[in-house]
Simulated scan of single mutants.
Amino acid sequence: FHIPVMGIAYTIDTPVKVAHFGINSSISIIEDHLIEKMRAYYYKLNNEPFLPISKKEPNYRAKRITDYLNLISEEVKKKVEGVKTAAFSSTSEITKYFEMLPEVSELKQKYLKFLQLTDPSEKESLESELRNEVKPGAIEVNIMTKIDSDQIDDNKEVIENGSDALQALKGYAESNLEHSTLVFSAGMNPRLFNYLSSFKSFHPDNNGNFSKAIAIKVSDYRSALIQGKYLAKRGIWVSEFRIESG
């Protein structure tokens, strides 16, 4: 199951609420002011010291985004561990995890078999297998490519690679997220696409796997072809094309 990005704020922390149930969801990371407020909220929630990232710091937008994504990732990991260690009671989160799986899922069938077992040793063995099968949903991020205003320094000069979208990309690329996807929407941005090749995290490892994959939301085949070819020429693999709503 997947929850797409909804505006700037509606899914800003959705992974914390659903990822431990194996549900994928997307965060919009273009608005760093909101992200800074969310950083403050979660640090306070965890009784940890909050260190604001000042606008005077170089790359402050990217730093805010990186730290927030790392924070969300840690929150999800803690919740997943909570699910794995929960008792198989009628209202527990591990029970909800398996109950929400579709009936055709092999894992759901294994869970249903577990419920029918009466032999203690068999049930204990299968329970251990089920706990190990609990996996978090992916934390995806969205960048609206057209929101890409240049930023000006104190000398009234344009900051190199300091625009909104480029800083969002840098923040995501330098985060600890794994098995994640960056979703581009709202059309093509050559400057942003060119910047992708600066980061190793968007290139496959020796086994052809990506820690951070690229998906593009498109309205038609022509759009997919143009953007896909543009990125391919720069050595960037597009893992998925999604249909742009609206």
Rank of each mutant, 00 (worst) to 15 (best):
G82V: 05
A62K: 07
Q116E: 15
I139S: 02
E174K: 04
I216N: 04
L130M: 04
R191G: 07
K170I: 05
G137L: 06
L166G: 01
L34M: 11
A173L: 05
Y43L: 02
E74R: 10
S128H: 07
V83K: 06
I226A: 10
F241T: 11
S180A: 14
E81P: 03
E75G: 04
K233C: 00
G7M: 07
L196D: 06
P15T: 10
M38R: 14
E178V: 07
K135G: 01
K96I: 14
I152K: 02
I65G: 04
A213L: 06
E244I: 11
S125L: 13
V238A: 06
S125D: 13
V83Q: 04
F114E: 12
N46W: 09
A86H: 02
I29F: 00
K217N: 11
V158S: 09
E178Q: 12
S28F: 06
I30E: 08
D13Y: 08
Y111Q: 11
L192W: 02
P190N: 00
I29K: 01
F193K: 00
G7V: 08
E124T: 11
M38V: 06
N70K: 03
K55Q: 15
A173T: 08
N155D: 14
S163R: 06
N206G: 15
I139F: 01
E174N: 11
A138K: 14
E244G: 07
A168Q: 06
S26K: 00
L34I: 14
H179T: 09
A19D: 02
K217L: 12
F114K: 05
I147T: 10
L101T: 13
N176F: 03
H2E: 15
P15Q: 02
M188Y: 03
N206Q: 14
N59H: 14
S89F: 03
A62C: 07
Y97K: 03
V18I: 13
Y41T: 08
S211M: 02
Y111H: 05
K17T: 12
S197W: 02
T118P: 00
I72M: 09
I35R: 00
K77N: 08
E36R: 04
G22N: 06
K63F: 04
I147A: 08
R39T: 13
L192V: 10
G171T: 05
I3E: 01
E75A: 10
P58W: 02
P58K: 09
R191C: 01
Q151M: 13
P102E: 11
V104L: 00
E160F: 10
H2T: 15
T11H: 01
E240L: 15
Y172D: 01
T95R: 09
Y60F: 15
N24A: 14
L117R: 05
N209W: 00
V5M: 07
V16I: 15
I159Q: 02
N207Y: 00
P190K: 01
V218K: 03
D148S: 14
L69V: 09
H2F: 15
K96G: 04
M38D: 06
L182A: 11
P15K: 03
P58F: 01
K156F: 13
G7T: 10
G137P: 07
F21I: 03
F184D: 06
G162V: 09
G162W: 02
E36S: 13
E240S: 15
G82K: 02
G137H: 05
L101E: 07
P190M: 00
E157I: 08
D32Q: 12
S128R: 09
T91Y: 09
L231N: 03
G235I: 09
